[in-house]
Nucleic acid binder design. Structure first.
Length: 188
DNA sequence: AGGAAGATCTACT
DNA sequence: GTAGATCTTCCTA
């Protein structure tokens, strides 16, 4: 497969723009000798300012991260994967679900289930399937050689739908969740 | 020690 | 589809 790593300046934009542009891109995880790949099909944008869903105690942490690095944290017994993105306002993009492309059996093993439709259709599920934990916190997904990278593959045509974010107690008026219309691996 | 957190699973109507 | 229990780490005291 011919894939190109997304460069650092890909993330130097408003998180909403980055969230939309990440749809259809490939999340690649190098695990031991195996390569696990999933296509990003659902994302959410978060801001560190004027965003009620953003946890204030996170700011002191993520401010240390640079563009295009992974910010991973635990919520309700699940690791959630964010990519740092910002232009003027500091923010990030939460990867909510991916479509399994390669290494599917390995993902099933990591998840302990055989049903592919439930393998990676949720933020906590995909981290488990790809064995993403705190160990990878701060990893640079725009750098060659990282154990976790994000690539572009080929151009695809799809329609982007948006909605309010999921699970947040207080959301903004703006719709900050984006997903590929009709994809079977969207979380509920 | 206690509470909170951007979730998931299971078991129902 | 909704409802409720329970999952694990981190922060505050």
């Amino acid at each position: 497969m011919l894939m190109k790593i997304l460069p650092k300046n890909f993330y130097k934009k408003d998180p909403t723009i980055v969230a939309k542009k990440l749809l259809g891109k490939f999340l690649v995880r190098f695990l031991n000798s195996k390569t696990l790949i999933g296509k990003i099909v659902e994302t959410e944008a978060y801001y560190s300012k004027d965003d009620p869903a953003f946890r204030k105690d996170f700011l002191s942490k993520i401010i240390k991260y640079t563009l295009g690095t992974a910010f991973i944290y635990m919520v309700h017994a699940n690791w959630l994967l964010n990519i740092i993105a910002y232009k003027e306002i500091f923010g990030g993009v939460l990867i909510r679900s991916i479509e399994p492309i390669k290494g599917i059996e390995e993902m099933m093993k990591n998840r302990g289930i055989k049903d592919i439709s439930k393998l990676t259709n949720g933020p906590g599920k995909l981290t488990k399937a790809l064995k993403i934990t705190k160990d990878l916190n701060g990893i640079d997904v725009s750098k060659k050689g990282s154990k976790l990278i994000i690539c572009s593959y080929k151009k695809e045509n799809f329609e982007i739908k948006s909605s309010h974010r999921i699970g947040v107690k207080k959301d903004l008026e703006k719709k900050l969740r984006f997903f590929i219309k009709g994809n079977a691996f969207i979380s509920k």
